[in-house]
Computed example of a mutant assay.
Amino acid sequence: MSVADIISAKLNEAFAPTHLEVINESYMHNVPKGSETHFKVVIASDSFEGQRLIGRHRAVNAALAVELANGVHALSMFTYTPDEWQGMDAVPASPKCRG
């Protein structure tokens, strides 16, 4: 099972999202081909209702603590309630790697 699949499974279990995208952005960084070290997560869940951004990010970090301690070097998060996500046109773009 790929790291992206593990991240997806854990986030689905923890948040029952109405929208979830796990995007491996490792190819954008100076890592070996086929690496799974840099990810972007876009998630919309009722679980985030009434939470501030920092609380949402802490909850995602807690759900992925094992992965973050074992190989995932970077995790970009975009966390929304279903109503917030409904107004979005697309997944936010990632900046170019500086390293």
Rank of each mutant, 00 (worst) to 15 (best):
E13L: 06
K40T: 14
A63I: 06
N12D: 11
S2T: 15
R56T: 07
S45W: 03
I54D: 04
E36H: 11
I6H: 00
M28G: 01
A4V: 01
A90D: 14
V41C: 06
N30V: 11
P92V: 11
G99L: 07
V60S: 03
P82C: 05
A90N: 10
F15V: 11
A59G: 00
L64Q: 04
P82S: 09
V66T: 15
P82T: 10
R52A: 09
V31Q: 04
I7E: 03
V91Y: 07
V3A: 05
L11N: 00
K96N: 07
A90Q: 12
P17M: 04
N61V: 08
T18L: 07
M77N: 03
V42T: 13
F78Y: 15
F15L: 05
T79S: 15
P82I: 06
S26Y: 08
S94I: 03
S35W: 08
S45D: 02
N24V: 10
P17Y: 04
C97E: 08
Q86H: 12
H57Q: 15
G34V: 02
P17Q: 09
H38P: 06
R58L: 07
E13K: 13
R56K: 15
L68H: 10
I7Y: 03
R56F: 11
P82M: 02
L64D: 02
K96C: 12
I6Y: 02
I6C: 08
G34F: 10
A14F: 01
E13A: 12
F39M: 05
R58E: 05
R98F: 12
I7L: 15
C97H: 03
S45K: 07
N61R: 14
T37H: 02
N24G: 04
R98E: 12
L11A: 07
L20I: 10
E84N: 07
A9D: 11
A63C: 07
A93L: 14
F48H: 01
V91D: 04
G71K: 04
Q86P: 00
I23Q: 12
A93H: 10
V31A: 06
G71I: 09
V41I: 15
D83G: 01
L68P: 09
L64K: 00
V22L: 05
E67I: 07
E25R: 01
D89G: 14
V91R: 14
M77A: 04
V66Q: 10
I6E: 14
F39L: 09
V31Y: 02
S94H: 13
A62G: 01
G87T: 08
Y27L: 09
D89I: 00
P17D: 11
K10E: 13
E36Q: 15
V72D: 12
R56P: 03
V22K: 03
F39I: 06
S45G: 06
S26E: 05
I6P: 00
H29W: 15
Y80W: 12
S47K: 13
L11P: 00
A74V: 02
A9M: 06
